[in-house]
Write a protein that binds this DNA or RNA. Structure first.
Length: 322
DNA sequence: CGTTTTTGACCCGCGC
DNA sequence: GCGCGGGTCAAAAACG
């Protein structure tokens, strides 16, 4: 039951062109920690070659084409991944429908807690009300097809040496308890969202029994407030943070059909924006973390990145084209 | 000084 | 009814 497979987010990037590009410019290898004062002396030889400007622009255009093609490929890959995920999720839901007695024993919560939730939900009809009422209903009528898990589980890979139980998902959490459970020697930490009680989301974080370097975070409920990292960026025109959060590839490719809705929810009143997005911020974060990890671990990527940065540093004028 | 973390006590559901 | 175990509370400590 508990076995899970990691999404292979290793993108196997085609980093060669960047290296070639670097070589074509006859640039010196990037020093480990280049000081900016050294730059002019390094570049001085480059600036004299006016003849090679055309070659360079040609190479740039070629490179641009390559990159956009690669971008297209990546987008397609991500789309396929999203679709695969949806298929898997559908299968899981089907499976759980066929085996109702095995699934989620999560609804055996305290009475007081559920009453609290109801109180909250009566006041503000925001997003989460649907899921908790579903929880109530599912307790009364377990045979209905309402298996919409408001509980999602996310796995974070961390350093094995990192002893903390901090799953960095961007939200602010307040720890309210810690327990050593029977089946797992490592303690389980209990967190509430810092916006509690207005935001009823809770999470449990515990290291995996099988792999101590894996943090298993179990989320209960949905945040009824925007992601903290998005609050600053949404107001301005720059969407840099959002792009970094990884929502772009799906929106760029497939419109609203591609959604990660682990914690299935009808669109809340907050969702005025028409832009397609991952429904579960945890899932989004998870994907981003995975991609970031696999990217940073990939020496090809780091060298390519260094080459790209150095290329831009030596050609400050060309930045306008990007 | 306000907020967060720690940690032992307590609550509650479940199985026997 | 009792014990067990997971989840939560809340006072004290730690922290910024």
């Amino acid at each position: 039951m508990e076995s899970f497979s990691w999404i292979n987010t290793s993108l196997d990037l085609n980093t060669k062109p960047l290296k070639l590009f670097n070589d074509e410019l006859h640039l010196p290898p990037v020093p480990p920690s280049p000081k900016k004062k050294d730059l002019p002396s390094n570049v001085s030889g480059l600036g004299t070659k006016n003849l090679s400007v055309k070659e360079e622009t040609g190479a740039l255009v070629e490179e641009l084409n390559r990159v956009s093609e690669e971008n297209k490929k990546l987008t397609e890959m991500l789309t396929v991944m999203c679709e695969n995920y949806n298929v898997l999720r559908t299968q899981l839901v089907d499976y759980m429908n066929k085996n109702p007695e095995k699934e989620i024993s999560s609804s055996k919560k305290r009475k007081s807690e559920s009453s609290n939730n109801n109180n909250n939900n009566n006041n503000g009809n925001i997003g989460n009300s649907e899921s908790s009422s579903t929880d109530e209903e599912s307790r009364k009528k377990p045979k209905e097809e309402t298996i919409k898990p408001k509980i999602s589980r996310v796995h974070y890979r961390t350093d094995a040496s990192d002893t903390g139980l901090v799953a960095k998902d961007g939200y602010q959490w307040r720890k309210y308890g810690q327990k050593v459970t029977r089946d797992n020697p490592s303690p389980r930490a209990y967190f509430k969202c810092s916006f509690a009680p207005s935001c009823p989301v809770k999470k449990k974080v515990q290291r995996s029994v099988e792999d101590q370097s894996v943090l298993v975070a179990t989320y209960e409920g949905e945040h009824n407030h925007p992601h903290p990292s998005q609050m600053d960026s949404t107001s301005g025109s720059s969407r840099g943070v959002n792009m970094a959060a990884g929502s772009v590839p799906c929106s760029a490719s497939h419109g609203s059909t591609v959604t990660f809705d682990l914690a299935k929810s009808k669109s809340s009143s907050n969702d005025r924006v028409v832009k397609p997005r991952f429904e579960a911020p945890e899932m989004k974060k998870f994907l981003v973390e995975q991609m970031a990890t696999s990217l940073t671990k990939d020496p090809n990527f780091t060298t390519a990145l260094a080459a790209a940065i150095s290329g831009r540093m030596f050609q400050p004028n060309s930045t306008e084209k990007w």
